[in-house]
């Protein structure tokens, strides 16, 4: 089994050559992970970081104030519809160290938003504020979409609104092949001259984040 896994990781890290792919840029720690649209894809993102052995802070619905509080997210505690997790190595980055990078998992889930008491409008407004904050404070913003076709939808749908709120403003976009079947992400990257990578499977991200943060 172990052997199979090694082969799999190797295979997954062989990036499909799609139009407009660029090299993986370097980013610095500490990193914050979060969601735009409250789908489960942020869990996938966290798992990817764990597999890559990169420590992170996570909040599903962070406010700019929480991001400004840096590592530890102002000691906020998880509550119903609000999750916080801080695994960042405090020896290297003590509490309050400003974040240098932010990974946003894009994917709208009606259920996820409902659970957090959000609607698509409030979520869009919240995400826009967060993206603005990152841009102003030079936090390296990475847009991630690993939801595949299930995480997309017709034009104007919740998912597409989340993509529009994050991807065009990101510093780097990384998506799975299924998520980019219609070339939506490559076009956004090309138009905005944004770094872009496409991977076969979500697991392929492990290699990319390793390159990014090491």
């Amino acid at each position: 089994m172990k052997k199979a896994l090694v082969i799999l990781f190797a295979a997954a890290s062989v990036v499909t050559l799609a139009a407009g792919q660029t090299a993986v840029p370097k980013a610095k720690l500490p990193v914050l992970t979060t969601s735009a649209g409250q789908s489960n894809d942020v869990n996938a993102l966290n798992i990817v970081l764990e597999e890559a052995d990169i420590k992170y802070d996570y909040c599903d619905v962070p406010t700019p104030e929480m991001v400004a509080a840096g590592v530890g997210l102002g000691n906020k505690q998880s509550a119903e519809g609000f999750h916080v997790e801080s695994t960042t190595d405090l020896a290297k980055f003590p509490k309050g160290t400003p974040f240098k990078a932010c990974l946003v998992a894009i994917g709208a889930s009606l259920k996820g938003m409902g659970a957090s008491g959000l609607t698509i409008d409030t979520e869009e407004a919240r995400v826009k504020k967060l993206v603005d904050y990152c841009k102003k404070n030079k936090i390296f913003l990475v847009a991630v979409h690993v939801g595949g076709e299930a995480g997309r939808g017709p034009a104007g749908s919740d998912n597409e609104r989340m993509i529009d709120a994050v991807a065009p403003l990101a510093d780097f976009i990384v998506v799975t092949k299924d998520s980019n079947k219609d070339g939506r992400f490559s076009k956004i990257a090309e138009k905005g001259k944004i770094g872009f990578q496409q991977v076969d499977y979500a697991l392929g991200l492990v290699d990319i984040v390793k390159k990014m943060f090491n």
């Binding site: 199979a4 799999l8 997954a12 409250q38 789908s39 489960n40 869990n43 996938a44 798992i47 119903e80 519809g81 889930s109 259920k111 996820g112 409902g114 659970a115 939801g147 595949g148 076709e149 299930a150 995480g151 299924d178 076969d200 499977y201 979500a202 697991l203």
Partner: peptide, 19 residues
């Protein structure tokens, strides 16, 4: 993520709504 990569089929995860 594993079944997608190793067995080639999709089955994404949906959060269970709390309310």
């Amino acid at each position: 993520m594993m079944v997608k990569a190793m067995e080639g089929f999709d089955s994404h995860v949906e959060p269970s709504p709390q309310n």
